[in-house]
């Protein structure tokens, strides 16, 4: 009987565990502001809800009004789960552990690229010396700025050998190129396939100048302090999205075709590129 009472308590405690967990603080999921907050919330709220349901713990989606506030939140580890670009991860790799990556257009990776107008006569990256190059999404943008810069460096062009313009998004960079606001544009190789771009311009008038090696898509990371079981559960849920109808709806809402498993080593090529562009200290910011 003496043994029975502690056993009954254990059973009761075990049965009541979800209740105790539900009462825990919600997990905070941050998404980088490459789109405006409203659109970001619209795209990823289903993901947060899905995670909440599957984890049995509330996952709270937090948006940022700009990259500065987002970067501060990452630096302050306010997010339990974070979705950002590759450079963001590289810079936060000490505090966050990558667990997965986006699959877009059915691909795991995409190359960074440089584009020019077909009617400009520019066919080589080296011809961009002294020209205006427009990049999208700011200087943190992995595919739209860092990777094209890397291609420029590969062609011997350092910062200052060309004039830099920054468009708010990669899509705008190629649209600006189309409207002859620059001589070349940097962006992901798939930017021309974006509906927004295809609907806005005649992409056939643009030419691909050069591409990097394929780079794994945007990463999903969790705080390194997160319990391994929880991190594993989150990883499993994310990887399992494409296997259920509900998960497919979540992916579709976030404009993704799937989520693949990723580890830190998968972003080593990115790290090499960022190091090449910004130097080792650039990765530590």
């Amino acid at each position: 009987m003496r043994l029975a009472l502690p056993l009954l308590w254990l059973i009761a405690a075990t049965a009541a565990a979800p209740v105790v967990q539900a009462a825990e603080d919600p997990l905070v999921m941050g998404v980088f502001p490459r789109r405006n907050a409203v659109e970001t919330a619209k795209l990823f709220t289903p993901m947060a809800d899905y995670l909440s349901e599957r984890l049995g713990r509330e996952v709270k989606l937090v948006t940022s009004k700009n990259f500065d506030s987002f970067s501060r939140a990452v630096a302050e580890q306010r997010y339990d789960i974070v979705h950002y670009n590759q450079y963001h991860y590289i810079r936060s790799a000490k505090t966050y552990k990558v667990i997965a990556h986006n699959q877009e257009f059915g691909k795991d990776a995409v190359a960074g690229a440089l584009f020019a107008r077909r009617d400009s006569g520019i066919t080589e990256v080296s011809q961009l010396r002294g020209r205006t190059i427009i990049f999208g999404g700011g200087k943190d943008a992995m595919l739209s700025y860092i990777a094209p810069r890397y291609l420029l460096m590969q062609a011997g062009l350092k910062e200052g050998d060309f004039k830099t313009e920054i468009a708010v998004t990669p899509e705008n960079a190629v649209v600006a190129l189309y409207y002859k606001q620059a001589d070349a544009a940097g962006g992901g190789e798939v930017v021309l396939d974006q509906p927004a771009v295809k609907n806005a311009i005649n992409v056939q008038e643009l030419r691909l100048l050069a591409t990097t090696e394929p780079l794994l898509f945007l990463p999903w990371a969790v705080k390194r302090t997160m319990p391994a079981t929880l991190a594993g559960s989150i990883q499993s849920i994310l990887l399992d999205l494409k296997n259920s109808e509900a998960g497919k709806q979540v992916l579709k809402s976030a404009i993704m075709t799937g989520i693949g498993k990723a580890g830190d080593s998968d972003y080593q090529p990115h790290r090499l590129i960022t190091t090449a562009v910004f130097g080792a200290e650039g990765n530590a910011k």
Binding site: N172, V175, Q181
Partner: peptide, 9 residues
Amino acid sequence: LGFDFLTLN
């Protein structure tokens, strides 16, 4: 100024 052509569009 932000080369936000999609917005202009």
